[in-house]
Structures are given as C-alpha cells and as structure tokens.
Amino acid sequence: DHDVVPEDKFQETLHLKEKEGCPQAFHALLSWLLTQDSTAILDFWRVLFKDYNLERYGRLQPILDSFPKDVDLSQPRKGRKPPAVPKALVPPPRLPTKRKASEEARAAAPAALTPRGTASPGSQLKAKPPKKPESSAEQQRLPLGNGIQTMSASVQRAVAMSSGDVPGARGAVEGILIQQVFESGGSKKCIQVGGEFYTPSKFEDSGSGKNKARSSSGPKPLVRAKGAQGAAPGGGEARLGQQGSVPAPLALPSDPQLHQKNEDECAVCRDGGELICCDGCPRAFHLACLSPPLREIPSGTWRCSSCLQATVQEVQPRAEEPRPQEPPVETPLPPGLRSAGEEVRGPPGEPLAGMDTTLVYKHLPAPPSAAPLPGLDSSALHPLLCVGPEGQQNLAPGARCGVCGDGTDVLRCTHCAAAFHWRCHFPAGTSRPGTGLRCRSCSGDVTPAPVEGVLAPSPARLAPGPAKDDTASHEPALHRDDLESLLSEHTFDGILQWAIQSMARPAAPFPS
C-alpha cells in the first residue's frame, strides 16, 4: 500500500487522527484517494484483494465477484509491481515495509483507509498491559489484515481490525468495519463480527460495544468508541475503539438485554438511515425525530424517553415518601432524547437536551391539597369587569335574561352582576328603583315568574340570613337542586349567576 499512500500523506493522516480522531482521518484520506487517478484506485483494489485478505475476510469475495470481468485485479505471486511496468521484474528490497512494521508496532494501528489505518492507538496503548502477550500477537497480524480498504464507483468500504477477539475476553470487541457502500446513491455502514460483515439490516451488537450512531460526518466517531472515555459513568459499556482492553462492566443492572439487537429503522417514522440506538431497549431513532430533536450524538450512555420514564417511576415512589426537613431528592440522569409524543421536562434553567451534561430531575413533595375552585371561562368573567365610571356595571355583549332568554333592554344586578328583565323577575308590577337594581334572587323575592315553557326556580334557592346585616342577608345558599333548576333554563347567565354566588365573597367592612 506504500505505492498507493505516500509517506507524507501517511504522516498527515496520523497527525489528523491524533488531533480530530479516526473518523475524520478516514474521511480525509478517502476524499484524497478519490481525487487520484484511476491507476492509484486500481492499485488500491489490488492491494485489498490479496489472497491473505480474501482468506481472512470471507465477505470480500462477493465484492470481488461483483467487479466487471474485464477488470484485472489479480496479484502476481513473485511480488508487487506497478501496473504500468511491462516487465515482470522483482521490485527492489522494500524498506517501507520495515517502516510500516515499526510504526504500526509503535502506534498499534494508524488512522488511514489502508491496512495502516483504523484502530485507535492511544486507547490501545492505555489498555494494553493486562493483555500484552495476546495483543502483541495481534499486532503482528495487523499489517496483514488490519485495514481492508475498498473503493469503487459501486462499493466503497473501509475495514478496521481490532485485537478484541482475544480468547477469554468477556464481551470482547470482535472488530470495527467502517463501511461506506455507495449503492444507488445511498450510504450504509456496517460492522465486522468474527470475520463476517453485518449491514444495518442485520447488524449484531457484538459483546459490549454497539453501533451508536451510523454517521460518517462530524467530529463524533462512527461508533461511540473513545478509548479514553473507558466505561460509562454508571458502569455503562465498553467502547469499540478500545482495542485489546480488559473486560469492562457491560450494562447497567436495569438493562433488559446485554447482547440485544437494535432495530435498523426509526421507532417514530419507521424509516432507515442514520440512527441513534438506545442503551436500554432495542429501539433506534433519527436525531430529527426525537422531541426535542438533537443536533449531535450525546457522549456516554444514552437512553430513550421510555427508558428514562421507567427509571424515574422506579425512583419516584421512594422520593415521595414523607421525609421531614430533607432537601428534594435529586436523581442524576443521562441526557435523554425524547421520541415524538413523549416529553420529560427538567427543571427550568437546565441546558437543552443533547448537550454533554447531566440533567437533574428533582422530585419535590406534593403540595397540600386544596379545595378545587369553580372553573370559569374568561368570557364568563367579562360582565364582572365591565364597570362604568360611576361604579355601575355596563352590559356585556350577548347578555340575556335568565328567565325569558331575551337580551333586549336587559338590566344588570348590582349584587350578582346577572342580566335580567324587571318585568320577568317582578311581574307583579313592583316599581323599579332608580339605583341599586337587584334581581329577584338578590332582592329576596322568590315568586316564580309566569313564563310559559320555563321551569320556575326551586323555592330553596334563597336562604336569607339575619336582617340586621343587609349585605350578609342576601347571601344565597345554592344546592344541587338549585343548579339543576338553573340548568333547565338553558341560559348561560343562569349558570354564571350560580357560579358567582357559589364563590365566597369577603364580608362587608363594618362602618367606622
């Protein structure tokens, strides 16, 4: 592969990997390779389809078979030569091979799209000592099968071997295949498990690692696999990028399955594409389908809103127990993405979901129960707010008499603000006073009005108090039968009158 990737590009890729991570280095090298001529790309395919690569990765054979028959990708048995050289000459001794072996032994695996480039050397060096003999053996194999790289107009793939297949390693990572398949204008990513390549439709969760975000852009890794992070704060999961590491605690105790298979379609829109997988259930989501939507993949363990709600429900009964003089119970939860139609709101002032922060849900004790107040519409209280300059209440639009249902020339009671006709409430011909108009209920007259088809109010509507207090003497005590009587009149003013009279009014101040 030294004929494909020059030394300066190799060093530039290593520097970019240390600065921005393996995914960015892979993407940059792939983009550079696509700008080369067809001879360089053909050399790339020839390096990929060597015999030892085909033996190690069985899924490469179907890719090789898909090439046109007129494309010669065979390799000479006596060494490598550029395709432009007409004579089959043995190339001179390859010093770059020693360079590659020494550099890969030092860096474990470079971040390139060629056999030198995919593992994360920093994480491997940190986690190597417990498994040094086995990992050293794996390093000797890295130059042979560490990076199976493929690129063409139909298929483009980048393979990364790992030393996680050490025997006896619980939940060992089998390997990473960062794979971009450009077929019919689409893009897919796969993962390699035990020599087999699994596409998103049959993606397997190998051991402790999972394909957290099938994305090839942005600074985030394709698999949430930063070796420096180790395990999740809650004892979460091992990262795919942690090559040759000792077994780590796999999943939280509440995880239903340690080796679950995540779905390959969004649980909201039932469509495929780039998904984020939940650590607590097999569901996966688009970032845009979450509520609120996320802009980037959160670091650490992530769970959907259903799993978060289940966790909150487990903690909430203990938080609601009476604990005198104790601060509110704080339950730190990872930043969760909410699927459509589901929402768990945190306290005000918290950062938005999706940031690399930890939301704190506070379970406050329930407030003391209070008697429910009568629910009145805002339009129902409008007549009470229509007060004239002299303190006389004006008529609201649409006000109707509670007896006849007519809204023409209605009066407004100064005591309960109900609309009424003087002739309907006082049919006996009582003279109307000039000021202080009161309806039949507030004036103490319980004589029913002779209106055909309208039920008369119940005599129990009024329960006047002592006459010594004029204001308190007109406080009506309405009961269920009074409400039914008012409802039978089918008037809004009657219902409003009952609601206003049912509310307690402050006692009249004593004259000074």
Rank of each mutant, 00 (worst) to 15 (best):
G241S: 11
V246M: 14
V246P: 11
P247L: 13
L250N: 04
A251N: 07
L252T: 08
D255P: 12
D255K: 05
Q257F: 13
Q257N: 13
E263S: 10
V268C: 11
C269D: 05
R270A: 03
G273R: 06
G273N: 12
C278N: 15
D279F: 07
D279T: 09
G280V: 13
R283L: 07
A284Y: 04
H286V: 06
H286W: 10
L287T: 12
C289K: 13
C289Q: 13
C289P: 13
L290C: 06
S291N: 11
P292R: 08
L294F: 13
R295H: 00
E296C: 15
I297V: 06
P298N: 13
S299Y: 12
G300W: 15
W302E: 14
S306I: 08
E314A: 10
E314M: 11
V315D: 10
V315G: 10
P317C: 07
A319K: 10
E321M: 15
P322G: 11
P327Y: 13
P327E: 13
P328C: 13
V329S: 11
T331A: 10
L333N: 07
P335F: 15
G336T: 09
S339C: 14
S339V: 14
A340L: 07
E343P: 13
E343A: 08
R345H: 09
P348W: 04
P348V: 12
P348A: 09
P348Y: 14
G349D: 08
A353Y: 15
M355A: 08
M355Y: 01
Y361M: 12
K362S: 05
H363K: 15
P365L: 15
A366H: 15
S369K: 08
A371I: 09
P374F: 13
P374G: 11
L376F: 08
L376Y: 09
S378C: 15
S378N: 10
A380R: 09
L385Q: 13
L385V: 10
G388R: 09
P389C: 13
Q392A: 03
A396V: 10
R400Q: 12
G402T: 02
C404Q: 03
T408F: 07
T408S: 10
L411A: 06
L411S: 11
A418Y: 05
H421F: 02
W422R: 08
W422K: 05
R423P: 11
H425C: 10
P427L: 07
A428W: 10
G429Y: 13
S431L: 11
S431R: 09
S431I: 12
L437C: 08
L437F: 09
R440H: 00
S441Q: 10
C442R: 01
S443R: 07
D445R: 04
P448I: 03
P450R: 10
E452L: 11
G453N: 10
V454Q: 04
P457A: 07
R461F: 09
A463Y: 11
P464W: 06
T471D: 15
T471G: 09
T471K: 10
A472Y: 15
A472G: 03
S473C: 14
S473I: 15
E475L: 04
P476T: 08
H479D: 09
H479V: 14
D481S: 03
D481F: 03
L483H: 06
L483Y: 10
L486N: 00
L487Q: 03
H490C: 01
D493L: 00
I495M: 04
I495W: 10
A499C: 00
R505M: 11
A508Q: 11
F510N: 05
F510D: 08
